[in-house]
């Protein structure tokens, strides 16, 4: 009998600790200055919203803010799963209907990591949509996060939120310059787009939802390193327009300076500024 008490004691202690520490972490998340925390806490108001994976970070926000004299807000995250980007964009539009433009980086549907999805469990308490996407796409993780609240914080998203607990995440850019060895090796590497119709249609949901609120949406293909082969790029762009009716602004080969890149996929600050300049030139952004 005594053994049973100890076992029950262990179970009770585990769950009490789990809930208490889980509650403490949730409090910290609410106070964090990380982008999703700010958004759900009501501090994410902006004129321009940027949606994408890590390549969305190429759209260098501070420069964009200064030249357009408008506020920007980014929902970009490394290998952001498109389903999560879509629901978070909808959450953003609902919460901040005054947003005027949404810039969507198109590789969101090609360069994402589904394993990252349960990482957003950190924000499942703030959004029924986030909760629902995780429940549908990764039931096992969802169940685990119901059983253990600590499990909701077992991810990189939470760690980032803690890192930005007391400071804004506006330093989240690529500011390295690509190495010479990497430059030389570029033609030997490549990426091939899969062109998935389902994902294309899903991404078009952002445009459709924004349209109902009178918000402009631009789908943009950000720059790639000039000598880095990208296969099926034209096919993807054509298919996207064919299925959704939205044109794609193609900057994939617009930056020829190799030193404007961090690697083959990401522009650095110099490249980021150049991308913003291109958007101004093309009338996507207005200089005020």
């Amino acid at each position: 009998m005594k053994k049973l008490y100890w076992i029950l004691g262990l179970i009770a202690l585990y769950f009490i600790g789990d809930r208490l520490v889980g509650y403490f972490f949730q409090q910290q998340i609410e106070k964090s200055q990380f982008r999703y925390s700010r958004m759900y806490a009501g501090n994410g108001e902006a004129d321009i919203l940027i949606v994408g994976n890590s390549r969305g970070l190429n759209f260098y926000q501070p420069y964009m803010d200064s030249v357009t004299n408008q506020n920007t807000f980014s929902l970009c995250y490394y290998s952001m799963p498109p389903e999560m980007a879509i629901v978070m964009t909808k959450d953003y539009i609902d919460q901040y209907p005054k947003v005027k433009k949404i810039l969507v980086e198109l590789t969101l549907i090609e360069m994402s990591d589904d394993k990252l999805l349960p990482g957003f469990a950190t924000y499942m308490n703030f959004s029924p949509r986030v909760d629902s996407v995780i429940k549908v796409k990764d039931k096992q993780s969802w169940n685990a996060s119901q059983l253990s609240h600590l499990f909701r914080y077992n991810n990189e998203v939470f760690q980032r939120a803690m890192y930005y607990r007391n400071k804004l995440d506006d330093d989240w850019y690529f500011d390295r310059t690509i190495t010479e060895a990497f430059i030389q090796d570029a033609p030997n590497r490549s990426v091939t787009f899969k062109v998935n119709d389902t994902l294309i249609r899903q991404l078009a949901e952002i445009g459709a939802y924004a349209k109902t609120k009178g918000i402009e949406v631009y789908y943009i293909m950000g720059p790639f390193f000039p000598t880095y082969p990208v296969h099926n790029l034209d096919k993807l762009l054509a298919r996207f327009t064919e299925l959704t009716g939205y044109p794609v602004i193609n900057y994939s080969r617009s930056i020829q300076d190799p030193y404007s890149f961090t690697d083959y996929l990401h522009a650095n600050l110099k490249g980021g500024r150049a991308t913003v300049d291109l958007m101004i030139k093309d009338g996507i952004l207005n200089v005020q």
Partner: peptide, 19 residues
């Protein structure tokens, strides 16, 4: 034992990689 076991379980829930 109860504290150590619970502590280990918390750490596993918080840091474990199960994929």
């Amino acid at each position: 034992r109860v504290i150590l076991f619970a502590g280990a379980l918390w750490l596993i829930a918080l840091f474990g990689t199960f994929s």
